[in-house]
Design a protein around this nucleic acid. Structure first.
Lengths: 216, 216
DNA sequence: TAGATTGTTAATCGATTAACAATC
DNA sequence: TAGATTGTTAATCGATTAACAATC
């Protein structure tokens, strides 16, 4: 069966649904209508129903959606029931922050190895995981069935490391380096460009202040 | 003059243009056509011209765009010529990583104060900036002309802190806590939801693998 | 002047919203 | 059965792409 491609706009909203449904579940709420969820999340009920129907009918007419069931279904869609082995490359501040972030482990994202090009860091540990030298990267990825690499390195070395990762069969890169990576199509890349995000905030802040000035 | 609202889709692309233009500038390239930039950035030339024309004509027929000029103009649009005073709330791993990130300072985002609710951290320093107790937050924000708060605290306390910030006149929040904040409309919020980002990667990774299996 | 390339209008595409018949 | 609410089709809206006249 040829499945129709789901737009990235929809995918991008799923984690937010997942979060709200998790909260509802924790509150012991059993069912919710698209209308109520719409009020809660400040999106249209129509969009909620459309989004869910991309993946088949999760609701029931006259009843709404079962919170726990919907939560589980979204988790399956996002692939969270599945374990992933990660390597973290770049044990600087941000890398260490991510390595210490326990919530990823809970969702099945397991950091198996940490690498850094700085000899002073090699041999040290972050949350019990030793920091390794970059030389061993390829072998480690292959031997430990690693599918995701987290890139928290400067932009200058990011492209080179990405190529090495592509060469040893990595499947996805979570990229915090401030460049766009040039990797083969079959490798999934998700960028987190922090300074881009801050610039957006800067724009909106300035725009709002300007508008205010004009009114005065 | 009533300025027409620029869509967030366009704003979201500006930092990427800015980055590419900065690189071109560093390479000493003087001018570029929308066509060449299009090839480089893998977007359509049409989109590039439309985007820039939202802010007035930056180019010249038959010539293209002057790299340095365009770079400066985008920097102005994004408000990067302007200094902003920030407080960082939450001196955990992520907070410290951000505090240590020098590039923000370069762009005029100056971290003036760091706050944490953990008494064990209070009094310590991050890059020369002392960590303060939460009690002093409001006074500090007012006295130091702070306009942006960076929230790197757990979701449980995020809403409460956001309300305190709203109460003392903060203008924008860069939110790393994994909740949607309920603040008045005039406060700009930019969310960085890391786990949402990882879930998106997870979805795309799984989808690709599934498609591959089907073909085999 | 001729060629290049923008600025801008028009066409297309996709995503969001509205409406309502189906059905629990 | 009557009421509620989904699933889904149709309408609208906005964003992207194409086309080309304006102009450097």
């Amino acid at each position: 069966m040829e499945e129709k491609e789901i737009s990235q706009a929809v995918i991008g909203r799923l984690p937010r649904y997942y979060r709200y449904l998790g909260d509802l579940k924790d509150q012991g709420i059993e069912r919710i209508s698209s209308q109520d969820l719409s009020t809660l999340m400040k999106v249209t009920a129509s969009q909620i129903r459309q989004d869910f129907n991309n993946f088949g009918g999760f609701g029931q007419q006259g009843y709404g959606y079962n919170v726990e069931y919907l939560y589980e279904e979204i988790s399956k869609i996002l692939g969270l029931y599945q374990k992933h082995n990660l390597v973290l490359i770049g044990a600087g501040n941000l890398g260490q922050a991510l390595a210490n972030y326990v919530n990823f482990e809970k969702r099945g994202f397991l950091i198996r190895g940490i690498f850094d090009s700085n000899p002073a860091l090699v041999g040290k540990e972050v949350r019990g995981i030793p920091i390794r030298a970059m030389e061993g990267l390829e072998a480690f990825v292959k031997e430990n069935d690693i599918d995701i690499a987290v890139l928290t390195i400067p932009k200058t070395s990011a492209e080179e490391v990405a190529e090495r990762l592509a060469g040893c069969g990595i499947k996805a890169i979570w990229n915090f380096a401030h460049v766009d990576l040039n990797v083969p199509e079959h490798i999934q890349v998700e960028n987190v460009h922090l300074s881009d995000s801050l610039m957006k905030l800067s724009y909106n802040l300035n725009r709002y202040n300007k508008e205010k000035e004009q009114k005065e």
